[in-house]
Write a protein that binds this DNA or RNA. Structure first.
Lengths: 213, 213, 213, 213
DNA sequence: CATGAATGAGGTTTCATTCAT
DNA sequence: CATGAATGAAACCTCATTCAT
């Protein structure tokens, strides 16, 4: 039951925002009664924080999985450079595609007014691996020395969010190719030795269906 | 009076979202009575659309000014390449810095449910010059041929939004240098002949106050 | 200007009732500004009383004209009996047909809460001639002795109102014939010597276009 | 609780009209909270329609009971002619006396703007038996052939409404005798063989307490 | 005189939440 | 434990009315 509640609440919060979503809406969509919900979550704020933790947790898992590929081996060494960046980017892109509501909800502007301490902590916990990976790559000279890590993170993450948002608004249709193009562009933007004009290595495999232009 | 109302409404909508902002909040902040507001805007939706048009209009003006610099000259020819891109980026960054509420409000996820036709038209009107400039630069071989224009636009715009949002959330402090770094990174990402490892030309003038690291 | 205001107010009050009609509605329909209206009528109640007096006055005039036919002569003597009754009935029916809004407004249930003294006096002033005529006819043996005058008045007046209302609701279409039929029926109901089965004299002139059945 | 709400709503709507009755008035009179009312009736319009259906249903029951008297027997045959008419009239008069608010509410001018389909259907359902009885009596030669059924119905019903309204406004005091007088008058008005001058049969039983005049 | 701008009170309705059952 | 019924506060909006211009 909590799963269904969290699911419909996530969907509604993502679609209409926190203030735009009423408890009755959630009750109806989840098919539960007010009291049932209030026994699980003592307030609307508690619910939205639970939704946040849940969604952020899944995002964190996706990131962790990208950093620690199931194939195992020695991630710290093998995952260096472009391949490691691509794995993270692709993981985030996949998360955005597979859990659109979660992605969208987490990117809503300013959860701040209603997020509690646990949620804010989670935010940092999920972000940390990305920051660490970035700092690590920079220290090793893989990423440019003349750009701050936080600028790289914010820009690349923002670019992905921008692509997803543009797709949602109908300004473009996101497919695998475009996401890979954007990934390589971000690599060029921040890699220390990325080739300038030629297209960078495309690890997404699966022969592309013909270059445009 | 309409100026004050639009101002406080923009601020509140940016801070708390459309649904999170109540009419009484606006009334108190603007120091007007309900009826006065309702004579100017027949509904909350009409008000938010007016706010949107107003803010988007100022953004559009900033973009237009960047494309057609007041100094005059021969923009069509002189503004090619990196300098033209930099002028646009800087204009957007300046807008974000000088009108933080407007920038934030316009980037709120999904105005869609309450925006009317005029607002949607305005959205496209403002976006169009950017898309045209981008297509133009690409046609001339200044921007990469192997990346779609809409991907470039969405990525670069998203990167700027991501930077501003990260700054607002305290993940970084945006200054002129960082914005310039990000601008050059985006140039590397999408320019046809951007140098790979060396730092690109920094047109922001005024010697930088010391490189980090 | 007062004429236009009274006209649209009458129409709106008749259509939507006193409480269902707002001052802004009247202002828009009349094309005047609030202050203009408030200069003429110091309140909504004052306006509705003015409308009432105006409409009731025209009804009173119609009744008076029926009692004192323009052709002159000696109404007191010549208008005895059936012809006098028919003249009054026809006058009322004509008023209902020619001034539907006024007729309807005056028949609204319970003006009481907002009518002032002048309006209540007018009500009686207009009613009086009908009551006097009725009493006169009864005293002369033209109307039945065994039915109270007030019962006759209320029944016949109610019958006419019922016919007009039924027509408005689409339950019947009122034409000259049906109004004449009803008039004769009311005559049979209350006349001392009305024939039982045969149709009474039809003073409405203008050969009827074929009897039904 | 719905009974109390319907009761006070009926009373208030009858007294002050739909637009003149505010939800808070109803809440206070019924002693319930807004939300309680809105859980039962999703809007003021829904409430007024429920009130209408309820009141009209009771009127319909009164009519049906008059047509199909509880004493049983053979109504189809025995109830012919004057007695049948009298039973219906008396039933309506009793309804008006016993449920003044319902009678008055149902006779308010033009519910039309807020009545929904169910209410309009009910209106016809309740009216139908009267129309059928009237047509039946006319076909059998009991009612006059030269007057349309709809005119008879509208006139007689209007006469009753007129009497009740006159009584409410203080123009007369309705008692059993006067209602019987009016009933016989309507019989004379529309019966095929009603005596002209003599008083018709008075089936209301119970010797009258002295003729007036 | 005529007006547009302004207002406080009150309209209908919904919200987040609680509680008897 | 689970629920429908109930609630006070507050939401958006309109009203009858006034007043500086």
């Amino acid at each position: 039951m909590t799963a269904r509640i969290l699911g419909v609440a996530l969907q509604l919060f993502a679609d209409r925002g926190y203030h735009g979503t009423s408890i009755p809406m959630i009750l109806e969509a989840a098919g539960v009664s007010a009291s049932s919900l209030y026994r699980l979550y003592p307030s609307k704020e508690a619910l939205v924080n639970a939704v946040f933790l849940d969604a952020k947790g899944r995002l964190g898992a996706a990131i962790a999985a990208a950093e620690d590929p199931p194939g195992g081996g020695d991630p710290g060494v093998a995952a260096e450079g472009h391949a490691r960046f691509a794995r993270i980017w692709d993981a985030l892109a996949r998360f955005a595609a597979e859990e659109p509501a979660a992605f969208r909800f987490l990117e809503l502007q300013d959860h701040a007014p209603y997020l509690d301490g646990a949620s804010r902590t989670k935010e940092l916990t999920v972000l940390a691996p990305l920051a660490l990976a970035c700092m690590d790559l920079k220290r090793r000279g893989v990423l440019r020395a003349d750009v701050e890590v936080d600028v790289m993170l914010a820009s690349a993450w923002g670019a992905l969010v921008g692509l997803v948002k543009a797709a949602r608004l109908g300004y473009l249709t996101l497919d695998h190719d475009k996401l890979a193009d954007a990934r390589e562009a971000m690599w060029r933007a921040f890699a220390a030795d990325a080739p300038a004009t030629a297209q960078g290595p495309n690890t997404s495999g699966a022969g592309r269906r013909g270059r445009k232009r």
